[in-house]
C-alpha cells in the first residue's frame, strides 16, 4: 500500500460523500420547501403538523435520527433495496434529508417573511390560487432572498454526511479510518488530507452559492 493506493481510497471516499450529499440535497430541499409551505398555509392542521415536525426533528441529534432510520425502519420492514449497502445509503440519505429539511424550512420561512405582502396580494388579485401564489411568486422570491443562509445550511449538511460512516456507509471518514489503519505512520497527513477534501468540497459549494446569489439577486 503506498500513497497512490491511498489516493484511490480517498477518491472513492469522496464519491461516497458526494452521492450521499446530492441525494440528501434534493430530499432536504423538497421536504424543506413543503414544510415551509405548510407553515404559511391557511389550514391550521397543516401549520401545526409542520411546526411540530420542525420542533421535534430539529431538536433531535442527527445521530439519533440516523439510528431511527438505520435500525428502526428495518424493523418496520421498510426497505428501499435488496442490497444492504444500497439500503444503508438510502437510510442515511433519508435521515440527512429529514433532519436538514427543518433548517431549510426555517430558513425559507424567514425568506417568506421578508417578502413585501403586496407581492402575494398582487398575485391573488390576478386570480392565482394559494398554491400558485406560493409556488410562482412567494417561494421563488424567498429562495432568492435566503441564498446566503441556505448556503450555510447546505454546507453544514455536507459535513453532516460524515455521521453516515457509523451506519454502514463508505465515505470520506471511512476512507480516513482505512487510511489510518493502513498507514499509521502518516496519521497527520491523512487527517489533513481528509480536512482538505472537505474544505475543497465546501469551498466549491460556497462558490456555487455566490454565483447563484449574484445571478438571482432581486432588485427592489
Amino acid at each position: 500500500m503506498d500513497i497512490f493506493d491511498l489516493s484511490g481510497l480517498f477518491l472513492s471516499g469522496a464519491w461516497g460523500t458526494l452521492r450521499l450529499f446530492l441525494l440528501a440535497l434534493v430530499g432536504s430541499l423538497a421536504l424543506g420547501t413543503l414544510l415551509a409551505a405548510m407553515r404559511v398555509s391557511p389550514t391550521p392542521v397543516l401549520r401545526g403538523a409542520a411546526a411540530t415536525y420542525v420542533t421535534v426533528v430539529r431538536n433531535t441529534p442527527l445521530t439519533l435520527v440516523m439510528f431511527f432510520c438505520a435500525f428502526g425502519l428495518p424493523i418496520l420492514d421498510i426497505q428501499f433495496a435488496s442490497d444492504r449497502g444500497l439500503n444503508s445509503f438510502f437510510y442515511a440519505s433519508l435521515a440527512l434529508s429529514a433532519y436538514t429539511a427543518c433548517f431549510v424550512a426555517e430558513t425559507l420561512r424567514s425568506g417568506i417573511a421578508a417578502i413585501p405582502v403586496g407581492q402575494a396580494e398582487a398575485a391573488r388579485a390576478i386570480g392565482l390560487s394559494f398554491r400558485q401564489t406560493l409556488s410562482l411568486i412567494v417561494l421563488p422570491q424567498a429562495f432568492r432572498t435566503v441564498i446566503p443562509p441556505l448556503g450555510s445550511v447546505v454546507i453544514a449538511m455536507l459535513k453532516n454526511t460524515s455521521i453516515a460512516s457509523a451506519f454502514n456507509n463508505r465515505e470520506l471518514i471511512s476512507a480516513m479510518r482505512s487510511g489510518i489503519e493502513i498507514r499509521g505512520d502518516m496519521v497527520i497527513t491523512i487527517l489533513i488530507a481528509t480536512a482538505l477534501i472537505y474544505l475543497v468540497l465546501a469551498l466549491g459549494l460556497g462558490r456555487i452559492f455566490d454565483l447563484l446569489e449574484r445571478k438571482l439577486v432581486i432588485l427592489r
Binding site: A166, S174, A175, G179, E181
Partner: peptide
C-alpha cells in the same frame, strides 16, 4: 468496524 483492518 468501518475502516478497520478486518473490514478491509
Amino acid at each position: 468496524v468501518d475502516g478497520s483492518t478486518p473490514a478491509q
